[in-house]
Simulated assay, not measured.
Amino acid sequence: MSPVLDRRTRWVTGSAVALALLFAGAATVASARGDAAPPAPRTPSAESVDAGFARDMAVHHQQAVEMSFIVRDVTRDEDVRRLAYDIANTQANQRGMLLGWLDLWELPKTAPEGQGPMAWMPGAHGGHGMRDMDGTQGMDHDGALMPGMATRAELDRLRKARGKDAEILFLRLMTHHHKAGLDMAHGCAQQCAVPAERRLAAGMVAAQQSELDLMADMLAARGAPPLP
């Protein structure tokens, strides 16, 4: 591996985990101190941006964790395994925080009736633009469309792939996944009412953009063309 890739891999691994710990600590301190931080105007409603982001990003993160565990078992490449471990560790931690907020707010983890995924994002159309690698429209594992998520067929291909083929497929799927996640995180960072949730979303933007840059380098190193 080139010195540049090695430095970037170590930086992303360390910074993403550090960000996750930082935001977890900030949320704990804010909860403990109570009136030390400006409170949100009110407890978010089930239809709010805060609740919508928490629900959708929790689902989005769960699939990223799943894909990371899959590729860990089908390749021996240490760089890919290290990246997969970092993604799984960071996003599992963040998912726990998002679900914890929903519990704290006493809100359901499923969207209100008639409100599909991404409905909390202005101008969003749940699942619009989500495509499988063969051009067919994709669905998440609950049957609901959501941008960036791999389809059942793509996950099956990843499970069956080995070595370099598995690495390339994982990097492509995770790139697509991260790009959609960035859109969601930007939406919350700009519109969420709860300060701790906005900070978490901003941290996701920084960490996932760094991972996107790293994955672009890793795909190039494997002679893989960029995603369409």
Rank of each mutant, 00 (worst) to 15 (best):
E106H: 15
A37S: 14
A206R: 07
M215C: 01
R159S: 09
M121F: 08
Q91W: 04
M57H: 09
A180W: 04
Q115N: 14
V4F: 09
L182E: 14
A180K: 04
L214T: 01
H141Q: 09
V29S: 08
E78G: 11
A16E: 13
A30S: 13
R8E: 13
H128A: 13
Q208K: 02
L107P: 07
A144F: 11
A224E: 01
V80K: 00
R198P: 02
G129P: 06
R55A: 10
P41I: 06
L214I: 03
L214W: 00
P44Q: 03
P228I: 02
N89L: 11
E197Q: 14
H60I: 06
G25M: 09
P226Y: 01
L5H: 05
V205Y: 00
K160G: 09
R72I: 04
A144D: 12
P44H: 04
R162M: 14
N93V: 08
L5V: 14
E66D: 15
L227W: 00
A189Y: 01
W101G: 13
G52T: 05
R152V: 11
K179D: 12
A27F: 03
G203R: 01
H176K: 12
I168R: 14
M121L: 10
V59G: 05
E211W: 00
N89F: 10
M1N: 09
R131I: 07
M1R: 09
A216R: 12
M146E: 13
L107A: 07
G148I: 11
G52K: 05
A46N: 01
A189T: 01
E66H: 10
G96E: 10
A150Q: 02
D134A: 07
A185W: 03
T75H: 00
S45P: 00
G203E: 03
V71Q: 05
T13Y: 03
Q94F: 04
A27I: 09
D6C: 07
Q208I: 04
G143H: 05
G14M: 02
M204C: 07
A111K: 10
A221V: 00
E167M: 10
G14C: 03
E47K: 04
M57Y: 07
I70V: 15
L227D: 07
T13C: 08
E106S: 15
A150E: 01
I87E: 05
T151S: 15
D134F: 04
T175G: 12
W101Y: 15
E66K: 09
H128D: 13
A201K: 02
V71P: 06
M121K: 11
H60K: 08
G127K: 03
K164F: 02
G163D: 07
R42A: 15
W120G: 11
P122K: 04
D132K: 06
A224F: 02
E113R: 13
D103A: 11
P228W: 00
L200N: 06
H176A: 11
R199L: 10
G163F: 06
G96A: 06
A185V: 04
Q190N: 06
G25S: 15
M67A: 12
L227Q: 01
A207M: 11
A185D: 10
D35Q: 05
H61D: 13
Q137P: 07
L19N: 09
G25L: 15
P38H: 03
R72A: 14
R8A: 12
Q115Y: 15
A161R: 05
P195D: 05
S2Q: 07
G100Y: 05
D142Q: 11
